[in-house]
Design a protein around this nucleic acid. Sequence first.
DNA 1: CGCCGCCTTGACCACCATCAAGTGGAGTGG
DNA 2: CCACTCCACTTGATGGTGGTCAAGGCGGCG
Lengths: 225, 225
Amino acid sequence: MTAKSEEIGANVDLIAEGDRPENVHVVMSGLAYRYKLLPSGRRQILSLLVPGDMCDLHVALLGAMDHSLAAIVASTIVRIPRQTIEDLVENEPRIMRACWWATLVDEAVMREALVNMGQRPAGQMIAHLFCEWYVRLRAVGKSNGLSFVMPMTQEELGEMTGLSTVHVNRSLQSLRAQGLVSFKHQVVTMMDFSRLAALSGFHPGYLHLISRSIDPDQHGRQVTA
Amino acid sequence: MTAKSEEIGANVDLIAEGDRPENVHVVMSGLAYRYKLLPSGRRQILSLLVPGDMCDLHVALLGAMDHSLAAIVASTIVRIPRQTIEDLVENEPRIMRACWWATLVDEAVMREALVNMGQRPAGQMIAHLFCEWYVRLRAVGKSNGLSFVMPMTQEELGEMTGLSTVHVNRSLQSLRAQGLVSFKHQVVTMMDFSRLAALSGFHPGYLHLISRSIDPDQHGRQVTA
DNA sequence: CGCCGCCTTGACCACCATCAAGTGGAGTGG
DNA sequence: CCACTCCACTTGATGGTGGTCAAGGCGGCG
């Protein structure tokens, strides 16, 4: 089930709010994100699509996109025609089931994002994001040791968290000064994961990584049971 | 495909975070909500389940609940065993599809909630919620004219929006004073819907109400089957 | 009548937004 | 090799939105 892959430049929309979705998008490499634009010009980034768990099913059934999808850095993507998905749904219940499952995990991540924005102050919110990314990227082997690449600006981090760029900056400095985590030149380094997790109330259960058990060792397994 | 229905008292959990889900829950009457509890004791309400679009599928595939589900007022619910759902998924692609579709709409609502919390100040956030409820409840015939019942306290409204009770109260007073909307004794009255929608940037597209007309009569019954 | 939720009000202060200016590195062209 | 530019990050000052604490009103119900 291959389709032609496609190179997409940074900050290029894969599909925009209002479009009728004709394809399901899969991010092969790079990084993409969902966002909504407000009349005021402000932007809310809704979620990230990282290689590994990046299948975008939302699109298959709804009539019009209620949000946009863009690449944050140059990325390789595959567009799968709606019809192919429909066929899969009919004929390949196992694949269908896997996709559905991925959707559920996406939703769980969004629920945690709501908690993050609703209940946690800036520092903890950012800390929580870093913990989540760390665990998710480890799970797909995109992290060597304590650091990982997160090709985002502080402004974009602000658009994810609803914070101003200035405040993101100051919060990062504070985290750094406490010896918890640093974020420089698109690289996040987890200086003290467990304290960071404690600070931000991060508990990886919501990522539902167990059944995903691609990974044997390391963090994010307290759900193991 | 009927199952025994069950009466649930106000503030009783249908299922709690960490439980292994054995049933899918459908709210027949009343009002339920998803929430997460933080160590601090604070609570984030994630979404409402209103009669009409209240099927809770999240549960079928994941290993453990990452959030809790409770009734906000005395409600009638139906518990459908996991196995029944599995069978439906296998044998009744149309039903399965409808359920999946409902899940996608849920997700769209959550995306808008993220925008709400991330980008809008208190008054607009609350106004937007009221607009959404109004449209959704109208679509299922639960609103006569300009008002509808929303059996929630201001404290719970605060737990949905991440605001303190005090600030919710003051924001409500301000909306009321502007002649936009009132919320007294569990009844929301839309005094000026269009101005309220304009103020809060409400655009109902994300509710995907049009394509919902899978059903001949009246919106929002796709779960009925 | 009296209690108990829930709503309301006031005072005070923190978190975070905004505005504005300045630093520093990467890439470009002289 | 050195301007020069651009962009992201940084820093300071100021004020508003919204949190917290605390007390008071006001039904509803036993």
